[in-house]
Simulated assay, not measured.
Amino acid sequence: MSDHETSTTVCYRHPDREATLRCSRCDRPICTDDMIEAPVGYQCPECARGGQPVRGLRDLLVRPLVSQTLVGVIAVVYLVSMAAPLTRQFGLVPALAGVEPWRLVTSAFLHVGLIHIGFNALLLWRLGEMLEPVLGHLRFGALYLAGLAGGALGIVGLGWLTAYTPLAEVPLLGWVFATSPVGVTVGASGAVFGLMGAAMAGMRARGVDPWRTDVGSLVLLNLVITFVLPGISVGGHLGGLLGGFLAGKVLFVEASRARAAAVRTIVAAIAVLLVSMLLF
Rank of each mutant, 00 (worst) to 15 (best):
G187D: 08
V66C: 03
P181E: 05
V76S: 06
E254V: 06
G151K: 03
T9H: 08
V263S: 00
G174S: 11
L273N: 01
A38N: 09
C23H: 02
V192G: 00
L274Q: 07
L221S: 14
F252P: 00
R49K: 14
G50I: 01
T265A: 10
L86G: 06
H4W: 04
Q89G: 02
L218H: 06
W211N: 09
L167F: 10
L273Q: 02
G50L: 11
A168M: 06
S7R: 13
S217P: 00
L172Y: 13
C23E: 03
L242F: 11
V93T: 14
V228K: 01
G231F: 06
A19N: 07
Q52Y: 01
F119K: 00
G136F: 09
R49T: 07
G151N: 03
T6S: 10
L131A: 09
E100K: 14
Y164E: 13
S233G: 15
V267A: 15
L161W: 01
T8W: 03
A146G: 10
P29N: 08
V253G: 04
M35N: 01
S217W: 12
L124E: 02
E129D: 13
S233C: 00
M35C: 12
S107L: 10
R25M: 04
L246M: 12
M1F: 07
G190P: 04
L21R: 15
S217A: 15
V250N: 11
R17I: 03
D34Y: 10
C47Q: 06
N222C: 08
L86D: 04
T265V: 09
V208S: 03
P39V: 01
G231A: 06
D209C: 06
E100P: 00
G197C: 07
